[in-house]
C-alpha cells in the first residue's frame, strides 16, 4: 500500500485516498519524524531516503482530501522541520494546507494575499505562483487566472502542466482556438502522450460542433487526432469513442469537397470509404472492449467504469435505428 504513497495522489480514486489517509496515524507514528544528519546515532540509523519525504508529501495531500487536517498538519510540520520554512515547495504546501482549511471566500482571499506578498519578494517562486493561479481559479476569477497563467507561461514555456491547465480554462470559456493552441504546446513537450492527443481531438470536436465556418476542417483533424491516440495506445477506449463519434458525424454530413480543396491543415479531407471503414473498426473494437471487460478477462480490467457505460450507451444509441 505504501508504494502508492510514492506517486502523486491526484489520480487516486476517493476510496483509495480514504484508505491511505486512514493509515496516516500509524504511518506517522512509525516513520521517523526527523533525521538529524550531524549526530553520531545517524551512523547506525537507516539512511535518509527521498522516499520518506515523498511519502510525507503525498500523505499530506491524501489527508487533506479526506479532511484529516490533524495528520496533514503533522506532515507539514515535519516537512517544514526538515527543509525549512523558506523552501519553495514547503511554502506551496503550507499554502495548500491553508487553502484546504479555509472556511469561506474571505479566508481564501487572505491566502491569495499571502501568495502575492511572497511573489512580490521572489517572482521566481514557481510552486507558489502555481498555487496563486489555482486559488484564482477556485475563486471563479477565470479571466484573472488565464492572465496569470499566460504570465507564468511566458517565463516558463516548457511547463506541460501549466499549458494543460490553460487549455482547460480556455475551453471552459468556449475559446476553442486558444485551447487548441495550448494543447498543441503540451504535445510539443510530451509528443507521445496519447491522452493529450485524445483530449485535443475532443476539443477539436467541440470546436467543430459550435461554429460552422471551419467545422469540416476541425472535424477531420479531430478524427485524425483520435487515430493518432489509438496508434500510440492500443485499445484506448477514449480514442475509439471519439473516433466513432467523429466518423459518425463525417458520414452523416460529409465535407464539401469544393470548399475543402485547400484546407488549413494542409491535409486533404478524408476519403469517405476510409471513414466508413474506421467507423466500423471503432464500433467493433468498442463492442470487443465492452464484452471482454464485462466477462472479466485478464488484461481488460483497467478501464474506468463510467467510460465503459458511456461507450455502451453510444453503441446502443447508434444501433437502435438498425434494429427497428
Amino acid at each position: 500500500m505504501s508504494s502508492s504513497l510514492l506517486h502523486p495522489p491526484a489520480h487516486l480514486s476517493p476510496s483509495v485516498a480514504l484508505q491511505l489517509s486512514q493509515l496516516a496515524p500509524s504511518l506517522l507514528r512509525n516513520a521517523p519524524s526527523s533525521i538529524t544528519s550531524y549526530s553520531l546515532s545517524s551512523l547506525w540509523a537507516p539512511a535518509e531516503s527521498p522516499e520518506l519525504w515523498t511519502t510525507y508529501e503525498n500523505l499530506m495531500l491524501s489527508c487533506l482530501r479526506t479532511g484529516d487536517e490533524q495528520s496533514a498538519h503533522l506532515c507539514l510540520e515535519r516537512l517544514t522541520e526538515r527543509f525549512g520554512a523558506e523552501n519553495e515547495r514547503v511554502m506551496a504546501l503550507r499554502g495548500l494546507f491553508q487553502e484546504a482549511t479555509a472556511q469561506d471566500d474571505a479566508a481564501l482571499k487572505q491566502v491569495l494575499g499571502e501568495y502575492e506578498t511572497i511573489l512580490a519578494k521572489d517572482p521566481g517562486n514557481m510552486p507558489v505562483s502555481k498555487r496563486r493561479i489555482v486559488v484564482l481559479k477556485s475563486l471563479n476569477k477565470t479571466i484573472e487566472a488565464i492572465t496569470a497563467l499566460n504570465q507564468f507561461l511566458d517565463a516558463s514555456p516548457t511547463d506541460a502542466e501549466a499549458w494543460a491547465e490553460l487549455a482547460d480554462l480556455y475551453v471552459s470559456q468556449g475559446m476553442y482556438p486558444q485551447g487548441i493552441f495550448a494543447l498543441e504546446e503540451v504535445l510539443l513537450i510530451t509528443p507521445n502522450a496519447w491522452n493529450i492527443h485524445a483530449r485535443l481531438g475532443e476539443v477539436l470536436y467541440m470546436a467543430a460542433s459550435t461554429n460552422d465556418s471551419g467545422s469540416d476542417k476541425y472535424l477531420a483533424e479531430s478524427m485524425r487526432r483520435f487515430c493518432r491516440s489509438i496508434e500510440l495506445c492500443d485499445d484506448y477506449l477514449r480514442g475509439y469513442y471519439g473516433l466513432k463519434l467523429t466518423t459518425g458525424r463525417l458520414i452523416t454530413n460529409p465535407p464539401q469537397a469544393s470548399r475543402q480543396s485547400k484546407s488549413d491543415t494542409g491535409l486533404p479531407p478524408p476519403d469517405i470509404k476510409t471513414v466508413e471503414r474506421l467507423n466500423e473498426a471503432a464500433t467493433s473494437k468498442l463492442a470487443e472492449i465492452i464484452r471482454r471487460n464485462a466477462s472479466g478477462e485478464a488484461g481488460w480490467q483497467g478501464y474506468d467504469e463510467a467510460e465503459i457505460i458511456a461507450a455502451k450507451e453510444l453503441l446502443d444509441r447508434q444501433s437502435a435505428p438498425i434494429i427497428r
Binding site: 521566481g124 511566458d154 517565463a155 516558463s156 514555456p157 516548457t158 511547463d159 493552441f181 498543441e184 504535445l187 510539443l188 513537450i189 509528443p191 483533424e221 488549413d264 491543415t265 494542409g266 491535409l267
Partner: peptide
C-alpha cells in the same frame, strides 16, 4: 529561467514539430 526555458521551447518545437499541423 525564462531565457533557458524559451530556448528549450524552441528545441521542443524543432524535435516534436511532427505533431503540429503545417499552419500551426
Amino acid at each position: 529561467i525564462r531565457e533557458q526555458r524559451s530556448l528549450l521551447r524552441g528545441i521542443n518545437l524543432r524535435v516534436n514539430a511532427h505533431n503540429l499541423s503545417p499552419s500551426s
